[in-house]
């Protein structure tokens, strides 16, 4: 049976996992299963950049659970993600594939030298989770700035999004779910 596996990579606050679980349950018609937390993979750390390669995280997620057709696995981490080409990532997903990873690191107000703000962290986390899971269901970046699928290349653009998909992306998701028979 298809499911959405949620796994924390390294130390992730429980309340953040709960927000993410609730948002995923609201938007995606898959039963959610929490996997036991895993450690950040050794090979992911880039000592020169003090960041973690997201592709290594995704490789590790692929090995975690046998993924049947229609299932997704979402890794959540609090470490800073990057790829060799880019200075950072809020998250990454396999386009139309089963694996996605989201980093909370740059969603914290503290990262920008501001006092912590839990409600803002929750909003940002939900938006990024919808965004990356949206990619796994074949959604590409949306030109509607307030849609969860719009490309955010800095935190202000994350804040400009709503915690939902625009009508067009939402419809595309619904069509995809109905085509896949309840997935």
């Amino acid at each position: 049976m298809s499911e959405l596996c949620l796994v924390s990579i390294g130390s992730v606050p429980e309340n953040a996992l709960q927000w993410i679980e609730a948002a995923a349950a609201e938007w995606f018609p898959l039963p959610i299963r929490r996997l036991p937390p895993v450690a950040v993979p050794d090979g992911a750390y880039d000592p020169k950049r003090h960041q973690y390669q997201s592709i290594e995280m995704m490789k590790m997620l692929a090995k975690l659970s046998p993924i049947d057709n229609g299932s997704r696995i979402l890794g959540v981490t609090d470490v800073d993600l990057a790829i060799p080409m880019l200075t950072f990532l809020f998250g990454q997903a396999q386009f139309d594939g089963p694996i996605a990873v989201v980093s909370l690191c740059r969603l914290h107000q503290e990262f920008y030298g501001m006092p912590a703000q839990e409600s803002l962290l929750r909003e940002r986390a939900v938006k990024e989770v919808l965004h990356e899971l949206g990619h796994t269901f074949g959604l590409v970046h949306c030109s509607e700035e307030t849609c969860a699928m719009s490309l955010a290349t800095h935190i202000e653009l994350v804040d400009a999004k709503a915690e939902q998909f625009c009508a067009r992306c939402g419809l595309q998701l619904v069509q995809r779910f109905s085509r896949e028979g309840g997935v």
């Binding site: 390669q53 790829i83 080409m85 990532l89 990454q92 997903a93 396999q94 386009f95 590409v140 970046h141």
Partner: peptide, 11 residues
């Protein structure tokens, strides 16, 4: 692979 994945998200 990481660059390709990032660009694919853009369609």
């Amino acid at each position: 692979e990481s660059m390709a994945a990032w660009l694919r998200e853009d369609g």
